[in-house]
Amino acid sequence: MRNRKLDIAFWNYDRTRLLADGTVKIDGVDATFHSARIVPQIFEAMIQQRTYDVSELGMTYLLRTFVNGESPFAAIPVFTNRAFRHGAIYINRASGIKRPEDLRGKRIGELALYGHDAGVMSKGILSDEFGVRPDQCRWLIGGIDFPMDPVDFVSRPVPAGVEVEYADKGVDLGDLLEAGEIDALISADIPKCVLEKSQRVGRLFEDYEAAERDYYRRTAIFPIMHTVVVTRKLAAEQPEVVKAVYQGFLAAKNQMAEQYVKGMTFNNMDVMVPGFTKLIGDRRDLLGDDWWPYGIGANRAAIDAVLRYHCAQGLTDRLLTIEDVFVPGLLNS
């Protein structure tokens, strides 16, 4: 039987590299792989033109496609991008912000969208852990120094009672943060003023790694930013192909992780990151041997958090469930 031709898109990650270079094959699939300069370009092509059969999508981009509980896409439980987000909250040091509760009443910048993936998680954590709600702050949405088109290809809901303003194209929120024109910034990408160690700015959680470790130990949530989706049509008509796609992504991720672990014997000398071997060991101690898990079972707490935060922040019109969002045949993964 002839292999099913599929166009598959994702960014250039180590966990997908063995798929893209042909080391890992997807059983029964003749795959053509695609990428882009920045990952939102992949999202736009999938959402606007259905360019691909299988595509990486940010969780918030996927959830914004749901209307009356229905979406043209279904997720497979592959999580190409995930990150703890305590370190994604930046402050102007002259703003008077010393602790999370001090964000109330402040003007806060946010990258790209009201509720970009890092913002959804950061706001959810601020609300759950410190009682700071989005409606207690004022929001300015825009870009930073890295060139990126405005995100106007998905719905941009703003819940009642939340003050949200969009900055003009070309406005750099990092510059505004350094100048004190905004008090804080939530951003998946690190602004130049932080990378260049301006004394005018810092992080809300100075020891954010310790805060993130404590958060994980208490919640078992390793936050999810991006997943991989297929069209509902493909999921319904060829469920075995979709399962094979999942297995391919899983094998590529597992084999790359195995390379890192085996490389510890030789101090991972092929990686130009001092202390990389210790970093792997530390992360395995915290997160377990499978430190970047795929599948529903190992990620239920993290998925539920995203869905709950998305609803609580007024970005979906109802609380979606795992069963609403993911391919039925992989719910037991």
Results as ranks from 00 to 15, higher is better:
residue 289 D to L: 12
residue 105 G to K: 10
residue 319 L to H: 11
residue 37 R to T: 10
residue 259 Q to C: 07
residue 301 A to V: 11
residue 65 T to P: 01
residue 284 R to I: 15
residue 12 N to V: 13
residue 219 T to H: 14
residue 129 E to M: 15
residue 212 E to F: 09
residue 169 K to I: 12
residue 38 I to F: 11
residue 107 R to W: 01
residue 222 F to I: 10
residue 304 D to F: 04
residue 31 A to F: 04
residue 280 I to A: 01
residue 46 M to A: 06
residue 118 A to P: 04
residue 289 D to E: 14
residue 72 P to Q: 04
residue 137 C to N: 08
residue 281 G to F: 09
residue 197 K to N: 13
residue 26 I to K: 08
residue 271 V to S: 03
residue 18 L to I: 03
residue 68 N to V: 01
residue 314 G to Q: 07
residue 227 T to V: 05
residue 170 G to P: 06
residue 294 Y to T: 00
residue 116 H to P: 05
residue 195 L to M: 09
residue 187 S to E: 01
residue 222 F to Q: 13
residue 216 Y to V: 04
residue 254 N to D: 14
residue 25 K to M: 08
residue 255 Q to R: 15
residue 132 V to H: 09
residue 223 P to C: 12
residue 100 P to Q: 12
residue 25 K to A: 14
residue 301 A to M: 10
residue 253 K to G: 01
residue 163 E to W: 08
residue 269 M to A: 13
residue 57 L to A: 03
residue 9 A to Y: 06
residue 258 E to G: 09
residue 22 G to Q: 09
residue 268 N to R: 10
residue 104 R to N: 00
residue 309 Y to V: 05
residue 17 R to W: 13
residue 221 I to K: 11
residue 40 P to W: 01
residue 84 F to Y: 15
residue 253 K to T: 00
residue 60 T to C: 03
residue 233 K to H: 12
residue 78 V to G: 05
